[in-house]
């Protein structure tokens, strides 16, 4: 059995539309103008148990609507969904025992109480037997290293500390699948790193399936094995992070430090190579991976110059993602 099975899932909303101006506003008081907006359009995918999937897309692409249908919050218009074998909108309560949710922008912790109080309340909500609950809580407190601040009111915690406590609240009932919506939003570099590490550990040690939406490229690279890209309600890419890079990484950067200087512009003439920086001893090239290879460029450079140091950099993930969105929006124009 797969952790998540989605087949031809669709959802549309009615959106209020109104022409500009006071007259139109007045008219809309008496007659609502509605237009259909397709949020999710016939999407299908599967997530295996223990897999770590990043579900990405620009704002309004259909990510949140999909997650809401997977967690039983929204009814789809058509299509099938099974999450741990359950149909979310029909068996919502049973499903809630199987899944955990972390919404970076919607805290679950009580603001004025210590996080510990929320954990105990969640123990009641998930009907966890006292001994089992204590054991689980001790394990998570240790894993997330929150001992020093778990008894302080949440309002006094830093965002990073708060997020770690949010994670504990979501994992207290040992869910099989964890749905995370922008969990690292607003966190500093260290807090992001800690959160990613813990997610990977939970996945490794407890086999928790992870389904994460994020605008942070680091989340994709450091957490996900697989990426699903959704835009305008349709899946436009579904594959490994490596495959995503291969398909959409348009260029690589080569940094070169040479011992014998010279005029690089006159000597390097390879199609697909652009010189970004050409100082005497420090040069930087951008090469289009579709037109040439790193090897071809390096062969030529090493032939001509005595090289002291080389650095080869991939296209930053942020740029890959924005390329995908740009290409898709061009295609749909």
């Amino acid at each position: 059995m797969q952790a998540v099975e989605v087949k031809n899932l669709s959802k549309k909303f009615e959106k209020k539309t109104k022409a500009l101006g006071l007259k139109a506003s007045f008219r809309s008081v008496f007659r609502k103008q509605l237009a259909d907006f397709i949020a999710v359009d016939q999407i299908s995918f599967q997530v295996a148990k223990g897999e770590k999937v990043a579900f990405i897309g620009p704002n309004g692409a259909g990510k949140s609507t999909t997650i809401k249908m997977l967690t039983g919050i929204l009814h789809p218009d058509s299509g099938e969904v099974k999450v741990t074998g359950l149909t979310p909108w029909k068996e919502r309560k049973q499903l809630a025992f199987q899944i955990g949710t972390v919404f970076g922008q919607k805290p679950q912790l009580w603001y004025h109480l210590p996080a510990m109080d929320t954990f105990y309340l969640f123990g009641k909500i998930y009907e966890i037997e006292a001994k089992k609950f204590k054991k689980r809580l001790d394990f998570l407190i240790d894993k997330f290293q929150v001992q020093d601040f778990v008894y302080q009111p949440v309002r006094k915690l830093s965002l990073g500390q708060r997020m770690r406590c949010e994670m504990i609240a979501s994992l207290i009932h040992q869910p099989k699948i964890l749905f995370l919506d922008e969990p690292t939003i607003g966190l500093d570099v260290v807090a992001k790193q800690q959160l990613r590490e813990v997610l990977n550990t939970m996945n490794k040690e407890e086999g928790t399936t992870i389904f994460i939406t994020s605008h942070d490229a680091g989340d994709l690279e450091k957490i996900a094995d697989r990426v699903i890209v959704i835009d305008l309600g349709k899946i436009i890419f579904d594959g490994t992070v490596k495959a995503l890079k291969e398909k959409y990484a348009a260029y690589k950067i080569i940094d070169l430090k040479i011992i014998n200087g010279g005029n690089v512009k006159s000597k390097i003439k390879i199609p697909g190579v652009r010189i970004l920086k050409a100082e005497n001893y420090n040069w930087q090239f951008e090469l289009d991976v579709k037109k040439t290879s790193v090897k071809a460029v390096l062969d030529q450079l090493l032939n001509i110059y005595q090289v002291e140091d080389i650095g080869i950099f991939e296209t930053p993930m942020e740029e890959i993602i924005s390329n995908i969105y740009a290409q898709n929006s061009l295609k749909n124009k």
Binding site: T71, G72, R92, A96, K106, Q108, I125
Partner: peptide, 14 residues
């Protein structure tokens, strides 16, 4: 109401 839907309790009571 979304928030209350994600728990295994009656969402209205919750």
């Amino acid at each position: 109401l979304d928030f209350y839907f994600s728990f295994p309790k009656n969402h209205l009571l919750h």
